[in-house]
Design a protein around this nucleic acid. Structure first.
Length: 548
RNA sequence: GCGCCCAUAGCUCAGUUGGAUAGAGCAGCAGCCUUCUAAGCUGCGGGUCGCAGGUUCGAUUCCUGCUGGGCGCGCCA
């Protein structure tokens, strides 16, 4: 039960009585100011003007028409014409009772049931290990996927595996060169724009040690192809291990090269051509994006005959839409911003509705320690990998820090703060609240006290108790909104509020050893809070320690 | 030059879809443990919400224009 849903019918009836025709749902807010009631509505101000009345005068008429409402202790008009509603504590007791009955599904919703969603995230090129900056895409994407799942959607977590194209050839050539060096051709040229990482040596070592016959004496093309495959496998394994450490598991790894094998790339360009959107110039094939309202035409097939990334991307998005998802979500870093409009324009030109393709573009990440920007690993001096970040601060902190800020803002990742295990670190603050509750429940069990689902909750009257109940009662709508707006950080914010409310309650309200009725009721509240915190932490993909 | 994003306390950031006296954390200062985890709690100081207009009962929030910063604008992905 929610306060809004409870009061809305009474208000609708009162509005009808004073002759107002509603043009939508009445909006309620939770006043942040104490003394402004538990719920507030601006409906009188919204409709007063149309009726030619003073807002406060109209508000009074409305309040008169409302009369008395059960479980509401006060209805007051304040400020320019707000109607502030104060509930009887019994409303809170009823809400707590309902939440207790929800078991482990507190905060879940069914708004998405029957609908399917595909969330594509990470999708880093398999040309090396994930670097630290990739962490944001990983955490944001997985949390958004969790949000959909939590709201009842059937979710497919997808990784677009970019295993075709130019960057893979570079990888192959880099490995091939390192292999040649090991086979004695020490003057074999390393490609100018090749990959220099340690892992290239590792892959080459492995090839020479385990698969020497595939590269020695083999035809050069085949040896190169073998190097490419080995490189891809190594990178794929590395990426999957890192993701697994962050508790991220995709359902689908969509291989880019399958688009070529299945003829989808060819089909896509043929269909675009049929619509008159393709032309030849300077030996290349161009996509007439200006005809689709974009700024400039772009090459989709190079004069070498290789497609640019744009063509397979369009084919891929078309494929996702053909698979029949109700919603398709793409998570991209700001550096990919230019491609999205082109790809969507292409898909639209092929006759698909892109209204349900949602793109989340997160801004870049800066790592900071002691006020200085960290760009490279201290250990190796090379690029800072996600594995190293996880080693340094732990997986929970990585996941939490990357989602705790709005995706649209630049993220400053403070390594010093992240490494703190204490009051400075926001993750521990949440986990500590959960651990504290678990500790009390353990102590209660030692005394043969169980959480009783028919405890008399009416003894809960302390402001801290009421505040905590009210906050948890908003969990479901808070998570629904986070999902609808694709804003995972609001979950982190919300949980911080719940944790703070619990710490306050804990501090001011003794649980164990209080008067038996009060003790029983507070145990229920503690346990409901525990389940809410646990669900919230699971949603963010961080651990739920029972002791710290 | 063009496109997208950002600008709020000393620092890092929230701000419930346009509401009432703009909030947290960190940093600083001062307090609270013989009783359920002090990784907690309480208090103090700190603001021209980048600037200028506009929209209206009301703007940190929406619109326009500036200024400053980030990311893009390739026959790389």
């Amino acid at each position: 039960m929610m306060m809004q849903k409870y009061i809305a019918p009474y208000l609708d009836a009162a509005l009808a009585r004073v002759g107002v025709e509603l043009s939508g749902e009445v909006a309620f807010g939770v006043p942040r100011q104490e003394g402004h009631g538990h719920l507030s509505t601006n409906v009188a101000m919204m409709y007063a003007k149309g009726l030619g009345k003073q807002p406060r005068v109209f508000a009074q008429e409305l309040v008169d028409a409302l009369g008395t409402v059960p479980m509401v202790s006060a209805i007051e008009i304040a400020g320019p014409g707000f109607i502030n509603i104060t509930f009887d504590n019994s409303v809170y007791h009823a809400m707590l009772r309902d939440m207790d009955a929800m078991g482990d599904s507190i905060g879940r919703s069914t708004v998405g049931s029957g609908k399917s969603v595909n969330v594509e995230y990470v999708s880093a090129n398999p040309t090396g290990p994930l670097h630290a900056g990739h962490g944001r895409n990983c955490a944001v994407g997985d949390t958004i996927a969790n949000l959909f799942a939590w709201n009842g959607y059937a979710v497919t977590r997808e990784y677009y595996f970019n295993n075709a194209g130019n960057q893979m050839s570079k990888l192959a050539e880099s490995i091939y060169a390192r292999v040649q060096h090991r086979l004695g051709a020490s003057d074999y040229p390393f490609p100018e724009d090749g990959y220099h990482g340690e892992y290239i040596h590792e892959i080459a070592d492995n090839i020479v040690a385990q698969h020497r016959s595939n590269v020695e004496g083999a035809a050069e093309d085949e040896a190169r192809a073998f190097c490419k495959k080995q490189g891809e496998l190594w990178c794929f394994g590395s990426i999957k291990r890192t993701l697994s450490a962050l508790n991220i598991h995709h359902d689908e790894y969509f291989n880019e090269d399958s688009l070529y094998h299945d003829g989808k790339v060819t089909a896509t360009i043929a269909d675009l051509r049929e619509r008159g959107l393709v032309y030849e110039q300077d030996g290349a094939t161009w996509f007439a994006l200006t005809q689709l309202g974009q700024q400039q035409d772009k090459v989709i097939v190079k004069s070498t005959g290789e497609p640019t990334y744009r063509l397979p991307d369009i084919a891929y998005h078309r494929d996702k839409l053909q698979r029949g998802f109700d919603i398709v979500v793409d998570i991209f870093g700001a550096d990919h911003i230019a491609t999205i409009a082109d790809v969507l324009a292409g898909v639209r030109a092929l006759g698909y509705d892109t209204d349900n393709v949602k793109t989340v573009i997160h801004q870049m990440v800066t790592f900071v320690e002691n006020g200085e920007i960290v760009k490279f690993s201290k250990r190796s001096g090379k690029s800072f990998t996600l594995d190293e970040l996880i080693d340094e601060v732990g997986a929970d902190v990585v996941r939490f820090f990357f989602v705790m800020r709005a995706v649209g803002t630049h993220l400053e990742f403070d390594l010093g703060l992240a490494k703190e295990e204490g009051d400075k670190n926001p993750v521990f603050y949440l986990q500590y609240a959960h651990a504290r509750i678990c500790s009390i429940l353990r102590k209660a069990a030692e005394r043969d006290l169980r959480v009783s689902h028919d405890a008399d909750l009416s003894v809960l009257t302390h402001p801290r108790e009421i505040e905590l109940i009210g906050l948890i009662s908003r969990m479901q709508s808070s998570i629904e909104r986070a999902c609808e707006n694709l804003e995972p950080h609001t979950v982190a914010e919300y949980l911080r509020d719940v944790a703070a409310a619990y710490h306050n309650f804990y501090h001011d309200c003794r649980i164990l050893g209080s008067e038996p009725h009060l003790e029983a009721a507070r145990l229920v509240l503690a346990d409901v809070t525990r389940r809410a915190m646990r669900n919230g932490l699971l949603l963010l993909g961080v651990g739920t320690p029972e002791s710290m």
